[in-house]
Design a protein around this nucleic acid. Structure first.
Lengths: 234, 234
DNA sequence: CGAGAACTTGATATGCCTCAACTTGCGTGG
DNA sequence: CCACGCAAGTTGAGGCATATCAAGTTCTCG
């Protein structure tokens, strides 16, 4: 695999810790994969052990109870790292939500390489610490927020992540396309699809957002949305 | 500080990655602290930046909303690591639940030391990855479980962590003392104190547990408890 | 022994879930 | 190009689990 030289996320992924020749060496143990929406890369409980970098697309991490209740426990974007090195067992499914490109490694190969490249491990550590922070904030959301607060926070979060240029304020086109359907939003927020639909329509009725198509959200009144989410901000 | 040589958690904390002389060097930049229950070591949002190892005791990590709703986002035990190195800002309070001993470092000192000792960073990475896994499982609990399921899982989790010898099965004294009051259990599980009390009494009535004193729990029927928690296990 | 905190218990309220029908959007094939 | 059919999303009615509010009770510690 010699894609590395032209890799989109080369400067943001953990690979950015490496020198050119080291990237080449890492590239040699990696494999490029293309995923279609709904395709699962890693299954909960399996110990095959694969890790990967996301090059393009959005994937979800999810776990579920035996009766079918599901919770999305993470969402990964381009340049994010997937998998559980230095562990025995994956704790969740990893499934593509959009068309996606990933760069996979066998865990053992990756682990060996990482241990020889402390800079890489350091980058991974920083990333993991950040992910832990974000996951802990999510605990507050799931444990203590109402449906409206959950949705407001979710929309603000999405607007940050998905707005390309980073247009802040109440600029004319403060909108984005969600990579999720309603059920997936529900699975992220610990709600039912019906509640998501209802609260979203409340926001629409209050002219806080517009929903021109199923997956598109436009934020009309960011202040109002922040106010609803605000309790969270501390 | 020359406690390191006799430190209780010396072989389990991240220090275990280091050689004797390295531990000594780390010890020189650390300070020993004693905390009493309720004492807060780190405040949410502050950027003073302190990191620490827990030597003894139990501490909680918590965040709260402006109107007082609180969520415990983590619980740390002896040998666990506290704080957010390589970041700008702490996202939660760190408060002692019991008398506690911690070994603190200024973030910058610790970061400098860590970057010079890849083995230490590696241990920290493993720890952080494990913590992330556990936190993600907690998302499932908060987002998708009923109060009884939450409590059953909580009790089983506690019994694992707090049982000294690791007595499994239905041995005669399958009990432990919680380091939490009812309100804190509620704040861990995203419930109210009243619901915790009621469900706990249900378990008592069903002879699944006994509660000889406020903080003591004895598991009488581990199978039943597992069944209630079971949906989670997948 | 007294006072306060911690916890329990009860009555009521409510936000979210459940179940069910309906609508909309969208791709496919006639 | 339209019409069909299915998947996705919306809307409504009603129920239920948990929250809320308000007393009680039991520990605990000076």
């Amino acid at each position: 695999m010699d894609h590395c030289a032209t890799c989109y996320v080369r400067n943001r992924a953990i690979c950015s810790a490496l020198e050119v020749d080291e990237v080449t060496a890492l590239g040699r143990i990696g494999r490029h994969h293309r995923l279609v929406p709904g395709q699962t890369l890693i299954w909960e409980g399996e110990d095959s052990m694969l890790v990967a970098n996301v090059i393009d697309g959005v994937l979800k991490l999810s776990t579920s109870l035996s009766d079918g209740r599901e919770q999305i426990v993470g969402v990964v974007y381009p340049s994010d790292f997937i998998g559980r090195p230095f562990g025995t067992r994956v704790q969740h499914n990893v499934t593509a939500l959009t068309d996606a490109h990933v760069c996979t490694f066998s865990s053992s190969d990756f682990e060996r390489f990482a241990r020889e490249h402390p800079e890489l491990e350091h980058k991974l550590l920083e990333r993991t610490l950040g992910e832990l922070d974000r996951t802990r904030r999510w605990l507050l959301l799931l444990g203590r927020m109402t449906a409206s607060e959950k949705l407001a926070n979710f929309l603000l979060d999405m607007s940050e992540r998905l707005t390309p240029g980073g247009s802040c304020g109440n600029s004319p086109a403060d909108g984005f396309d969600l990579p999720f359907g309603r059920q997936q939003i529900a699975d992220i927020l610990g709600l039912t699809i019906e509640t998501v639909s209802r609260r979203l329509n409340d926001f629409k009725a209050q002219k806080i957002i517009a929903v021109p198509s199923r997956r598109r959200i436009e934020i009309l009144d960011r202040t109002a949305l922040s106010d609803i989410a605000a309790n969270a901000t501390l």
